[in-house]
């Protein structure tokens, strides 16, 4: 019983940061039509911002997280301007360029911080005992709460604000949106900033929990791909639901078998969805 409950608690935490990463990826795909292969490296960049400001320079943890959000968001702006805008009519070119950017970011992290794992002490060691034998550390709770707040804010922003309308319009039909006087460049910039910043925040918040290395982006991007395919590419709600689904399956299989089997199961899920229903479990009728 304790094991089951503990697994559920762990899975909720995993679902949170996975959802942040995947939603950012979907947002970028929805508006710009490119798959950002460097998305895992944006997560890594967020984690290393925390390593730098919190662990090395002794900034308060949440200040470091905020800096991570801004820094990675700006990285997203750079990518939009330098890579994706010139490649707007060429999705494969954009994907390839993002692979190039991935290698650049990875190497910069290696040069700046070395290839070893960075062990960061979490800002608080306190734990919540849910029931006897089931614990949730505060650090994990921060991740869950931040995810709920950020995704909630994003949802309100997309539904209620003028920018949000413009964003969704561009995702549905770029030409018609442009005819209505919506600036494609501004919208793409906004989507890229938000998408990248979400990945950055996920990396920043989980940095004390995962011990980042410069190569951590690989497992992150694989996870994100599985989630956006299972959830239906282009569907933000689908990405959130798929993140929860995947996190539970992955955590349960990891707990009862091992991590490699869990990865095999996850990838098989994705392959089956691709074969049976390529639009994903939650369809792509309503995009972004």
């Amino acid at each position: 019983m304790e094991l089951i409950l503990q697994t559920i608690v762990n899975a909720t935490y995993a679902a949170s940061y996975m959802a942040l990463v995947a939603v950012g990826l979907v947002l970028i795909f929805g508006v710009m039509g490119v798959i950002n292969f460097a998305h895992g490296e944006l997560y890594m960049a967020g984690a290393y911002t925390v390593v730098f400001f919190y662990a090395d320079l002794d900034f308060p943890f949440f200040a470091a997280v905020a800096l991570g959000l801004l820094f990675v968001g700006c990285l997203g702006l750079v990518m939009e301007r330098a890579l994706f805008r010139p490649m707007r009519d060429n999705p494969l070119g954009g994907l390839i360029a993002s692979i190039g950017f991935l290698l650049v970011l990875q190497t910069l992290a290696v040069v700046g911080f070395g290839v070893r794992m960075e062990h960061i002490p979490p800002p608080t060691q306190e734990k919540i005992v849910v029931i006897e034998g089931v614990i949730l550390t505060w650090q994990r709770l921060y991740v869950i709460l931040a995810t709920v707040v950020l995704l909630g804010a994003l949802w309100v922003f997309l539904r209620r604000s003028k920018f949000g309308w413009a964003l969704r319009a561009c995702a549905q039909d770029p030409e018609a949106a442009a005819l209505q006087g919506i600036s494609m460049n501004n919208t793409a910039r906004l989507a890229m900033f938000i998408g990248a910043a979400l990945a950055g925040v996920a990396g920043a918040l989980t940095a004390p929990l995962v011990s980042p290395t410069p190569y951590i982006g690989h497992s992150i991007i694989v996870t994100a791909f599985i989630i956006i395919i299972v959830g239906g590419i282009g569907s933000l709600e689908g990405a959130v639901i798929a993140a929860v689904l995947y996190a539970f399956v992955h955590t349960i299989v990891t707990t009862y078998y091992d991590g490699v089997v869990a990865n095999i199961v996850g990838l098989s899920m994705m392959l089956i969805v691709l074969v049976v229903k390529p639009t994903g479990l939650f369809g792509a009728k309503e995009r972004a």
């Binding site: 490649m87 390839i96 910069l108």
Partner: peptide
């Protein structure tokens, strides 16, 4: 250590 960076830069510039 910088070799992947050069590779990445070559890739970006060649696509662009």
């Amino acid at each position: 250590t910088l070799r992947p960076l050069f590779y990445g830069a070559i890739l970006i510039f060649s696509v662009l």
